[in-house]
């Protein structure tokens, strides 16, 4: 076991981890933030995406022992005190989801995109979520939700 201190959503999370444990596993099973999903555990579905110092990464491919010293943001860390993040709101309003399993990962990837590029084109949006599967096939409305959130943020 290695003792580490993870900084997740601004909070200190001291935790003991084994070398082979992924960050996704530790976030879910040891810290209890189950909004981060683990669909494939090999970087092929996108549902475990979280932000490392603002950049999206697959937490299933990140060793937890090697996660100290960064600011991590999960889906639980993006809403305001009284209101949802604009992306969360547009995903609800525009039906950017069906079963909802890919939703946290999609929103996290979209957040990183909009922070880097507030005026993305549709193809830029699609490329930003290229590594994310939605098995329900909601791509039309996921893209729409992201485009609408960008527009709301600009106005």
């Amino acid at each position: 076991m290695n003792s580490i201190n993870l900084k997740i959503n601004g909070e200190d999370c001291p935790v003991d981890v084994k070398t082979h444990w992924s960050l996704a596993y530790v976030i879910r099973e040891k810290i209890g933030l189950t909004g981060t999903k683990t669909g494939c555990e090999m970087g092929t579905c996108g549902s475990c995406t979280i932000l490392m110092d603002g950049k999206p990464v697959f937490s299933c491919l990140r060793m937890a022992v090697d996660a100290e010293g960064h600011e991590w943001t999960t889906i639980e860390g993006i809403e305001g005190d009284d209101e949802l993040h604009p992306l969360q709101q547009t995903f609800i309003d525009d039906h950017g989801m069906q079963c909802g399993y890919c939703t946290p990962g999609m929103i996290i990837a979209a957040k990183a995109l909009l922070e880097e590029n507030p005026e993305p084109t549709e193809s830029e949006v699609r490329k930003a979520i290229a590594g994310h599967l939605c098995r329900c096939g909601t791509y039309v409305r996921i893209v729409k939700s992201i485009m609408n959130a960008a527009e709301i943020a600009r106005s």
């Binding site: 933030l33 989801m97 909802g100």
Partner: peptide, 21 residues
């Protein structure tokens, strides 16, 4: 009407519990 999903809030906040959660 295209009313929003009643569990949309749980889904976008990561609060919805699937069995593994």
């Amino acid at each position: 009407k295209s009313l929003p999903l009643i569990d949309g809030y749980e889904k976008v906040t990561g609060r919805l519990k699937y069995a593994g959660d």
